[in-house]
Design a protein around this nucleic acid. Structure first.
Lengths: 210, 210
DNA sequence: GTCTATAAATGGATAGAC
DNA sequence: GTCTATCCATTTATAGAC
């Protein structure tokens, strides 16, 4: 292994996320987390003040990942603002597959989806992740496309909302249950997303060949 | 009061839903429920076998409400298939306001949203409520509109998906946090929904005056 | 940093009186 | 139908040994 072994503190966070995202914060006991890591529950208190402290650390992590995504969005802005239909669809499918369905992020989303009902912080991160950050990015993309003449005078903010609503719809439709997404479900989701994005493209975006 | 007082069993279910939809099933104790109803916890076991039994009864209720909605949809089918833009928007806003945000249903949705990660039954009801039932109804509506010539040969199933994605988007954007929806949030949600539905209408539906 | 041991509180659930 | 009393398992968290 060239990778240094993870510190216990990180192992605890990973194990806690694994458990929280399925059973919810309060169902999971410190014992459960300790067992998953392979240490006694009392040892956890060396790394974290209490159980709530673990949850808050996971919220902090989620926030960081969301901000990272924001940076990635900004860096990729140039790449996505020139467009063909196939590339446009590919970008949306990639957003679903390598972000919303990426293992760690997906676990965070599942956890946030449960805790947002109780925790204002969780609710705020959920909003950032599913609305604030992507909407701003999409708006930037569509603004550029409009400036380049690919879109006929349409409101970029509305286009962003419409686009994100499609993403959200497919995500919730296919990945809201307790099971880990099967290959068949992933394929169905990919297909429906492609169809809806193709429609979106044809309706709103003029190709250079049109 | 002409209304007969609710039986204790129903009071227990109401109180349990109130607590479950905010804190989640496992956070809430039988003692909490008893306190909310005004009886001792042991009395609850006269009405329900155990704590899980209460949750399952609430799931059953949710399922019944979802099926009721299905019937309502079917009965209202004729009324919505002749259309002006304003009526079209009004129908969508009403779907949000007097169904998804109706007090009892909204509590059920919040509960299901948390429990669907653990419970297959909750996940299934959630799917029915947000996808299966409304998608079928929307599809019927758009099929009728197509048959009457209001829609130019578009696929009713895709239109249904696009329509529902707008509803879902607004619902999740404005009502995913722990707070009860304020009047301001409700107004903002109504406004954004109206704008998006108006767009949808102008893009897909030909008026008789066009 | 991890362990054993233990405190103190809370949880689900039952028995039996009224 | 509801109460009091009680049981027993589990939980969070701490103290102190190694």
């Amino acid at each position: 292994m060239s990778q240094p072994e993870k510190h216990t503190k990180d192992k605890i966070l990973d194990a806690a996320l694994d458990l929280f995202c399925v059973d919810g914060y309060s169902t999971v006991s410190i014992r459960d987390i300790g067992k998953a890591v392979g240490i006694k529950e009392s040892s956890i208190y060396y790394h974290f003040k209490n159980k709530e402290d673990i949850l808050q650390s996971l919220f902090d992590q989620s926030e960081q990942w969301t901000q990272m995504r924001k940076s990635q969005f900004n860096q990729a802005l140039d790449a996505v603002s020139e467009i063909e239909c196939e590339k446009f669809i590919f970008a949306g499918v990639a957003y679903l597959e390598s972000y919303l369905l990426e293992e760690k992020i997906n676990k965070m989303i599942r956890m946030l989806m449960m805790e947002k009902q109780r925790s204002l912080k969780a609710a705020e991160i959920y909003r950032q992740l599913f609305f604030t950050v992507p909407l701003e990015h999409h708006k930037n993309v569509f603004t550029r496309m409009r400036d380049k003449g690919y879109i006929a005078g349409d409101d970029p903010e509305l286009l962003a909302a419409e686009y994100q609503s499609i993403i959200l719809y497919v995500f919730h439709k296919y990945f809201s249950g307790p099971d880990i997404a099967s290959d068949a479900e992933r394929a169905a989701a990919r297909l429906e997303l492609s169809v809806l994005l193709k429609r979106f493209f044809k309706q709103h975006i003029q190709t250079a060949y049109g």
